[in-house]
Design a binder for these strands. Structure first.
Lengths: 200, 200
DNA sequence: TCAATACGGCACGTGCCGTGCCGCTAGGGT
DNA sequence: ACCCTAGCGGCACGGCACGTGCCGTATTGA
């Protein structure tokens, strides 16, 4: 096998990311040290520093390695139902233990480290956004969304409240809340708006 | 004067908060150390630790000490115009240098330190929210907002997109963006909604 | 067999942590 | 006018994690 070297290399990499997640879950990201991660992984510090140039980027890789499966959007013809399903799945992953605290810590780190912020956007936020935008575009073409509605803005308005709850007020993001956001955003705040169809 | 002792105490406190802001603006909150703050303030480390039990709480006090004047809502009878004015003012304060990076760092710290998160909510987020909710309530009573619209939710939907831009994508929050959010949220995403009045 | 590469282990200097201790000074009590 | 005391600045300490050298080793590919 010509890739023995590479596979050894990869196994170390995975061991380090696994150890980083373990330590972060135990003591919190704020108290996560490279030393502790290296020790936990049974690895020298050099082996960590050779792969990641900062604690934040290591943590980013570790958290994103949990990307079990993508959050691709179904298309049943009912955009509200499809959005609800995807948002519920995403929130279940990202806003609840054990991953909720880790994801929050990752976004927190992004506020201090521009590299982490850029990488988080490029590798997680943008792909997820593109996927949702595609679904919204299809909905607009089928007349489920007003033709002059800016879809990038629509994404912000749908995601923003969830992140606001996750990061600022830190109230739980329940299925009911997702439902309320969807209804409210589709219906609009003005009186006499056309109501959106309720959950069947 | 019987409060000389208290005034001496307060002058130290203010000097430390001022020094914390200076250092944070120079090297960033991530590299802000108590030692540097104490030195900058011409103060012993004890004098800092006696007042704040963590770096995050000191930073919170320092940033909130910039609360020049409250962001109270005007009531001209046009809720969209009033919200636009307040949101524009808030964004101008909180999303632009020099305070933008500091506010982002504060929210970032809140992701790691529950005490900071709780204090930030209690001392800044909740009062601001209450103020906006009062204005929204008045608008609902005057028929500018649909009578069955949850106003707490309305606040989340209006604020969320701004925070999403500030914290996640880190795109600039422009006046046009605020305008777009207001129009979109009032009109709703569904087709054939009653359009909200445009800026005069 | 041999050179090369990546590795684990160890040690180092540095910076900051949080906490003692010491001597001083400015105010307040009498 | 006296001292008493709380709060202070300065200093030093042990501890921890940083990031980086160095060394000996094991596994790999020539």
């Amino acid at each position: 096998m010509t890739d023995s070297r590479a596979s050894r290399h990869d196994s170390r990499t995975e061991a380090i990311m696994k150890a980083a997640l373990d330590v972060a879950l135990e003591v919190g990201y704020a108290r996560l040290s490279i030393e502790a991660v290296a020790t936990r992984a049974g690895v020298g510090k050099h082996t960590v520093y050779r792969r990641w140039c900062s604690r934040g980027l290591l943590f980013l890789d570790a958290v994103l390695s949990l990307n079990t499966e993508g959050l691709s959007h179904p298309d049943t013809g009912d955009v509200v139902a499809d959005l609800r399903e995807t948002m519920t799945k995403a929130v279940k992953l990202l806003a609840h233990p054990p991953w909720g605290p880790l994801y929050r810590a990752l976004i927190g780190e992004a506020q201090h480290d521009p590299e982490v912020a850029a990488a988080l956007n490029r590798r997680f936020i943008e792909p997820q956004t593109a996927d949702t935008l595609a679904r919204l575009k299809a909905a607009k073409e089928q007349g489920e969304i007003a033709p002059d509605f800016d879809l990038d803005l629509a994404f912000d308005i749908l995601s923003g409240p969830l992140y606001y709850r996750l990061l600022i007020t830190q109230q739980p993001v329940t299925d009911d809340y997702i439902d309320s956001v969807l209804r409210a955003v589709f219906a609009g705040m003005s009186p006499r708006s056309r109501p959106v169809r309720r959950r069947s």
